[in-house]
Amino acid sequence: MYSLLIVAAALYGAVAGVLVPRARYRLAVEPEEEWRDAGPCGHAVGRWVGPARCAVCGGRYGPGALWPAVVTAVVCGGLAMAVGVRPELAVWLAVTPVCVVLAVVDWSVRRLPDVLTAPLAVGAAGLLGVAALIPGAAGSWPRALLGGLALGGGYLVLHLLHPAGMGFGDVKLAVGLGCLLGWYGWWVLTLGAFAGLLLGSLYGTGLLLSRRAAVMPLGPFMIIGAWLGVLGGGYWTG
């Protein structure tokens, strides 16, 4: 049963990952630009989910779906392995594709779209509230809400102290990730937040050492840190 759960979660992740590239293409634009509604060929893109390939002429307008499918499958399979058959696993699986899109968009154009960060925060809070009502849940919904406020507040302070180094999109992303991390406890919140900042700092140090002048995307590292925190929380509370 446990093995089947892991396989099922990985398959779900693979399918979800195949649907990520189109959203990435549409959202990966500069802040002053509108979301893309047409491919380079001029044909309408249409829906938000699906492969980055034109349905009319078959032309590709973005990266392929292989690596998003692999990454999402590994993330979902790892979550199922750590959490097991518990209600909150459905929440982690639901938010994973959103987090993957946010990570790749931020990496591409250094932007975390409100169209995803706001639903992530609201959706995480609401879904965890439902999960808390189901027998077998291993977390706390009030603590999840406080976690969102705490991590979002912490990033807001960092943003106000150094707005050039941390965008407001990172603050809004922190609210949703804080809800996910706070579910399992304050130590998980601390672990996930510290891991994200540490990974981001290491990457930034690498850029400095290589003398590559670039604006660093923090979102992907925040998301990886949150995933590591939830993995730890799911494993140790199981």
Score class of each variant (00 low, 15 high):
residue 220 P to W: 08
residue 110 R to W: 14
residue 20 V to F: 00
residue 30 E to P: 03
residue 139 G to A: 05
residue 40 P to Y: 03
residue 68 P to A: 02
residue 47 R to V: 10
residue 37 D to C: 01
residue 150 A to S: 11
residue 148 G to F: 08
residue 18 V to L: 15
residue 46 G to H: 06
residue 124 A to H: 06
residue 87 P to F: 01
residue 13 G to W: 07
residue 137 A to C: 03
residue 141 W to S: 13
residue 207 L to S: 07
residue 170 D to E: 09
residue 156 L to V: 08
residue 216 M to R: 10
residue 92 W to Q: 09
residue 21 P to V: 06
residue 233 G to E: 00
residue 63 P to E: 03
residue 108 S to Y: 07
residue 172 K to F: 04
residue 138 A to M: 14
residue 111 R to I: 06
residue 111 R to C: 05
residue 168 F to W: 14
residue 219 G to Q: 04
residue 120 L to I: 05
residue 237 T to Q: 13
residue 167 G to S: 01
residue 193 A to C: 09
residue 213 A to L: 12
residue 77 G to D: 07
residue 5 L to Q: 00
residue 62 G to T: 01
residue 191 L to A: 15
residue 29 V to Q: 09
residue 198 L to Y: 06
residue 146 L to C: 10
residue 89 L to M: 10
residue 54 C to P: 07
residue 39 G to N: 06
residue 155 Y to C: 11
residue 134 I to L: 14
residue 42 G to Q: 02
residue 167 G to F: 00
residue 1 M to D: 13
residue 230 V to H: 06
residue 154 G to M: 05
residue 229 G to H: 00
residue 129 G to Q: 13
residue 65 A to E: 11
residue 46 G to Y: 05
residue 205 T to E: 14
residue 12 Y to W: 12
residue 232 G to L: 00
residue 42 G to K: 07
residue 62 G to A: 05
residue 47 R to Q: 13
residue 12 Y to V: 02
residue 108 S to F: 05
residue 145 L to K: 02
residue 120 L to Q: 06
residue 224 I to F: 09
residue 24 R to G: 08
residue 201 S to C: 12
residue 208 L to M: 15
residue 23 A to C: 10
residue 182 G to P: 01
residue 18 V to H: 04
residue 60 R to W: 13
residue 122 V to D: 10
residue 164 A to R: 15
residue 122 V to E: 10
residue 117 T to H: 09
residue 229 G to W: 06
residue 158 L to M: 14
residue 160 L to N: 08
residue 88 E to S: 11
residue 35 W to G: 13
residue 193 A to E: 07
residue 59 G to L: 12
residue 136 G to N: 02
residue 219 G to D: 11
residue 86 R to W: 08
residue 142 P to T: 12
residue 194 F to R: 12
residue 153 G to V: 07
residue 110 R to L: 14
residue 76 C to L: 01
residue 176 G to N: 02
residue 13 G to D: 10
residue 196 G to S: 02
residue 104 V to T: 14
residue 158 L to S: 13
residue 95 V to E: 05
residue 32 E to D: 15
residue 5 L to S: 07
residue 220 P to T: 12
residue 225 G to T: 09
residue 22 R to T: 14
residue 42 G to I: 11
residue 12 Y to H: 11
residue 150 A to Q: 01
residue 133 L to D: 13
residue 181 L to E: 09
residue 209 L to T: 11
residue 58 G to D: 11
residue 164 A to T: 13
residue 106 D to M: 10
residue 203 Y to E: 12
residue 97 P to R: 02
residue 74 V to S: 03
residue 25 Y to N: 03
residue 73 A to C: 04
residue 233 G to N: 06
residue 216 M to Y: 00
residue 9 A to P: 08
residue 9 A to D: 02
residue 21 P to R: 01
residue 184 Y to F: 14
residue 73 A to D: 07
residue 78 G to V: 02
residue 144 A to S: 09
residue 36 R to D: 04
residue 29 V to F: 03
residue 217 P to I: 09
residue 225 G to L: 00
residue 231 L to R: 00
residue 170 D to G: 05
residue 202 L to M: 10
residue 152 G to C: 03
residue 71 V to F: 10
residue 152 G to Y: 00
residue 236 W to R: 15
residue 118 A to I: 15
residue 151 L to W: 06
residue 11 L to K: 02
residue 80 A to N: 08
residue 64 G to V: 01
residue 116 L to F: 04
residue 24 R to Q: 13
residue 59 G to M: 08
residue 116 L to I: 05
residue 22 R to N: 01
residue 199 L to Q: 07
residue 179 C to A: 15
residue 58 G to S: 12
residue 209 L to W: 09
residue 49 V to Y: 03
residue 118 A to T: 12
residue 166 M to I: 12
residue 141 W to F: 13
